[in-house]
Structures are given as C-alpha cells and as structure tokens.
Design a binder for these strands. Structure first.
Length: 536
RNA sequence: GUCCCGGUCGUCUAGUCCGGCCAAGGACCCCAGAUUUUCAUUCUGGUAACACGGGUUCGAAUCCCGUCCGGGAUACCA
C-alpha cells in the first residue's frame, strides 16, 4: 500500500522536514507498544482504534516498538504482543517482521536520529544540558512543594547556566541530561479529536528530560522524533498521555514540524473503577486465547468499550467496524470491563460457526477429551456432538468438559442422575424393556465403530419441523416416535420415562435432546448402559 | 497541593454539538411467563438511570454557573 506519505527525513538525513500542508501525508496512525509485558486489554483496544482509524481512512497502520526502557524491555514480551495483535486480527502495514519505508521500527535502532534532533534543539536553544543529580532535583521539588505555589516539578536550576558553570560541572565529571526548555506561562488551546478544545498553560509543566547522558531518549522525545520521521498523522493513545501531548506539541513546534492529530481515548477501568493495569488479573490477551475465547468476540467486546456501531446494535464484524469507524465517535468517559457481557458475546459468536468450523476451532481443547484418531475417523460424528453443544457453551474450551459421557461403554452417574433413577420404583424394569425395544430398532453403530453413513445423513441437533432426512439408520425423529409408542404400550407417562432414561444414558440430567443422545450413542452403548442401569 | 478530563439503568451505551420527536431507547445481568423430554437456545413481558443545587427559557438529560464524586497527570517509565 504505497501512499503519498513523504519522508520527512529523506534518506534519514536531518536536512529537511517536509510534512507541511502542501505535502499531504498519507494517513498513518501508529500504535506504539512497549515490550515490557503482555499485551493487555487497554493496549489491545488502543491498537485496535489506531488500526480501525487507519483502515477507515484508507491509510497505513504502523507498529512501533518503544524499547527505550532497556531494563524492562524483553524480546519475549515483544513476541507476546505481536501474537496478541495477530490473534485479534489486528495487522500492521509497517513495523516489526514487516519492515517499511520509514524504519527502523525499534527505537533502540534509531539512536542516531535522536542524537541529531538533540543537537539541533541544543543549537536553537530549545534544549539545554542539566547537570542536576537525582538528589538535587528531589530537593528542588521539595522546596516548591513547601511553597504551595501549586506547581511542583523540576525547578529549572540548570536552565540558565553560563558556559563557565557548565564547564565546571563537566570538569567535575557530571554528565548532563538534556532538558526541553518549555515556554514560560504560555497559554495555549489545543484540539483533541476526542476531548475537543482544551485550554492549558505551560506554567503547569516543567522542563522535561529528553535524552539521558548515554544517548537513550525518553518517551516524549523519542515519540516526537519518530512521529516526524515516520510521518505519523494520527496518534490514538490512552488519556494518561494527555499532558505528554502538550509537551510533544511544543517539541513539534521547536522542530518546525507539523503535529499529528491527537486522540486521547478514555481508560479501561477495573471493577474498582481504577485504571486497568498489567497487574490486574486476566488482562493478558493470550490468556483469553488460551482459555478458549473466540477472538472475534473479544475484538467486538473491546471495541464496544468506548465505541458503538450504532445505538441498537452491539454485534459487528471487523469489516463493519472499519466501515463505520470514526475516531471522533469514541466516548470520553472511562468504561468498566464487564466479563458477563463478554461471555454472552462469546456465545453469540460461537453459535455463528458451522459445526465443522466450530469443531476445528475447538480442537485444541477437545483433544483432552477426544482420542486423536477420532478427528479423522469420526469427523462427522464429532461435528454432530459439537453442534449439540454450541448453544450450551460460550468458550471453545468448554466442550471438552461436557462430552465425556459419549465415550466408553459405561458412564458414571452424578448425583442428579442417581436421583432421577431412584425416583421411579419401576425404572429398572422400564429400562430393561426399553433396551429390548432398542435392540429391535435400527440404531447407528456406536463409537469407535464406523458410523459415517449415519452422521453424514443426519445433522444434529434435531429441529422441530425439519424434514426427515434420508438415512439408513433410525433418525432421532424415528427413535422418538418409537419411544412414544413404547411408553404408551408400557402404560408409562412419556414425561416420567424420559428422566431415568437420560440419567442411564448420559449419567447426568442435562444435555442435548434425548433422541439426539440415543442417536449419538448408538446401538451397543445404549444397550450396555440401559442394561447396566437396569441392574444387568 | 496543582493542572487536565469525566459523571444517563448494577454494567456497556443511544440521545448532548443544532433545547421540544425522551413521562429517556438498545444491550448484558436479574426476575416472571411461553415453548419443551432435561439443560440450553429462542420468544414475550418486567425491574432499573439523566450526580446535586442554582440559573437561562414557554420548554433542559441537552445551554451557563457552582458543588460533589470519580479518574488521569504531576519520573533520568511509557
């Protein structure tokens, strides 16, 4: 996707900055990720809004890795973040493992660019060396605090150092940080795509550190140099960066560069209403993947935390979001994460897939309950099994715990099943008779025998008014008709018969329609379980 | 402390810019009922909110002011 985005630093020299109004940039929102931990909910949403903005604008979506916090950045974290984004379906046009014309996309590989910009700022007087030790800075802050003037921060004691004083510090072996010289008490009105017009005053901000003595830049500085270098047009980020945005605007100005459009989105809150942090449980994207959440649902749900497709519709696809997305429509208020609604949404998505699709997606978790060979020898049967549970579970991981009763000759009875068997004194007799009845029927064979013909012909779960499929074996509908006739002959109410029958067959009191159960279990298993329940 | 932002059902939100169509709509949750061989799905109905106080106006959830509450920032983290 080549665009008219022009390189502000052609050939990476620092000679020219070319992103003025006459040089329309290709929309290029960027998600900046810090590889110091997993991709969490908030980060994922921020990435998503950047992504959606880029796609909606027809621009490029960049992924930049801000790894200047060397003590905490790890390659493992980077991999986890990349996987998390991909799992959600958020793909980037430029960035790690992808490249692009505006790289490198790792800040630690861009050190010379920061150095160049720093020299330029030093020469123009927008930056100055600060020789203060952490202790001196802290002491200055304490004084300001005691004065109760309001402002608390760096007191600017190195702001107007003479050349001699600087030489003195240098001679004493002090290595300076580079600070940005903030305009003093300048009122400015800034426009934010989400917050609207906001008035701020630079007197509430201090001279901030841009570059460490070792040449590693700090966030605000690296960010601006890279936004210029990568011709970033839109910055969508968490609201906690709003003040940084002010500092950054001033730096763009000092560098004669055009500032991107900022959109500061509200934070995702935890149950206590506080900023969701990496320390809050269950915020790692890959945990959701591993727990069997459909990524489409997680994507949809996270998007909904602050943005809506329309007033009366909660469910939408990635494509629909891109078509309708406008960053200005993201809300201003923080949103609490609601696991219940996410879960509901998971169920909604899970029910949309065909049984074959669902089986495929659930397979990693199903393997705990289903013999490996069954996936090839009994694909049709497994599809029917999965289909019977699609309306009963919300996560891919939940099938495995429900379908154990389908395997093995016999089944263990849970408490509810025992109760249902014991309620009717004649249950054993009924079941024995019913076993004989089924023996005379034409049930499909039981797993692990080949029953392909049966499963190919009948699609479960059975629906009320569905046409009767052509099948060489008895279908659920025929089994039901036969069973109703049987109970009539026996003189037992159908409603009373059904409970012990289910208990004997499945070992529990929940599950698919009873005759789907009989069909799924097949002849041998049904007979074995009925006779076992009847006491042999 | 100071600066900035926010505040509609328990939760996510529509409506707020351009005041009347809002005795506030949708969704999740919850409750009741229908269907039914269980559970679930589905369907129907229900409970539930404009933070508070002043203005402006014929009329305010919507505009203005104040208060309260909540959050964020105030790093040689991002």
């Amino acid at each position: 996707m080549p665009g008219p985005r022009s390189a502000p630093f052609p050939g990476r020299s620092r000679s020219a900055i070319l992103c003025g109004p006459d040089d329309p940039r290709h929309p290029a929102p960027a998600f900046r990720s810090v590889p110091t931990g997993p991709l969490h909910l908030g980060g994922a949403r921020t990435a998503m809004y950047n992504w959606a903005a880029a796609r909606a604008l027809g621009g490029a979506f960049l992924l930049r890795i801000e790894d200047t916090d060397q003590a905490r950045s790890t390659d493992a974290s980077l991999q986890v973040i990349l996987q998390g984004l991909r799992w959600l379906g958020i793909d980037w046009d430029e960035g790690p493992e992808k490249g692009g014309d505006f790289g490198p996309y790792f800040q630690m590989q861009r050190l010379p660019l920061y150095r160049q910009a720093a020299e330029r700022l030093l020469a123009s007087g927008h930056a100055y060396p600060c020789y203060c030790t952490p202790e001196e800075i802290e002491a200055g802050r304490k004084v300001l605090e005691a004065q109760k003037t309001g402002f608390v921060g760096y007191d600017g004691r190195c702001r107007e150092l003479t050349a001699a004083q600087r030489a003195g510090f240098a001679a004493a072996g002090r290595r300076p940080n580079l600070r940005f010289r903030m305009p003093q008490a300048r009122a400015l009105q800034v426009h934010d795509l989400i917050l609207g017009d906001v008035e701020v005053n630079t007197r509430d901000l201090d001279d901030w550190v841009m570059l460490r003595p070792d040449g590693v830049p700090l966030y605000n500085f690296a960010c601006v140099v890279d936004d210029i270098g990568m011709a970033i047009t839109h910055v969508v980020r968490g609201n906690e960066h709003f003040q940084n945005g002010i500092k950054q605007r001033l730096l763009f100005e000092a560098l004669d560069a055009e500032c991107p459009q900022y959109a500061h989105i509200p934070l995702i809150l935890n149950k206590e209403g506080k900023k969701l942090s990496k320390r809050d449980a269950d915020t790692n994207m890959l945990d959701y993947r591993d727990k069997g959440f459909p990524p489409e649902a997680v994507f949809n749900y996270i998007a909904l935390l602050g943005w809506g497709f329309s007033g009366d519709r909660d469910l939408f696809s990635r494509d629909e979001m891109v078509a309708a997305f406008r960053i200005e429509n993201v809300g201003k208020a923080g949103a609490k994460f609601d696991e219940e609604k996410l879960r509901w949404m998971c169920g909604e998505y899970l029910r949309r897939w065909t049984p074959a699709q669902c089986l495929e997606r659930a397979r990693p978790w199903l393997q705990a309950a289903v013999p490996a060979a069954a996936f090839t020898t009994h694909a049709g049967w497994l599809q029917n099994v999965v289909a019977c549970y699609q309306e009963r579970v919300a996560l891919y991981s939940e099938f495995a715990g429900r379908i154990g009763w389908l395997f093995g000759e016999h089944v263990a009875l849970d408490e509810a099943a025992r109760k249902n068997l014991g309620k009717e004194p004649a249950a054993a007799d009924w079941l024995r008779a019913y076993a004989d009845e089924l023996a005379a029927a034409n049930l499909p064979p039981s797993y692990p025998q080949d029953r392909t013909a049966a499963d190919a012909a009948v699609a479960l779960p059975s629906k009320k008014d569905a046409p009767e499929p052509a099948c060489a074996f008895d279908t659920p509908a025929r089994i039901e008709a036969r069973t109703r006739a049987f109970t009539e002959r026996l003189g037992v109410k159908f409603g009373n018969f059904v409970h012990p029958l289910r208990a004997a067959l499945t070992g529990t009191d929940k599950g698919p329609g009873l005759f789907d159960v009989v069909f799924l279990l097949g002849r041998q298993t049904c007979l074995a379980r009925l006779r076992a329940a009847a006491g042999g």
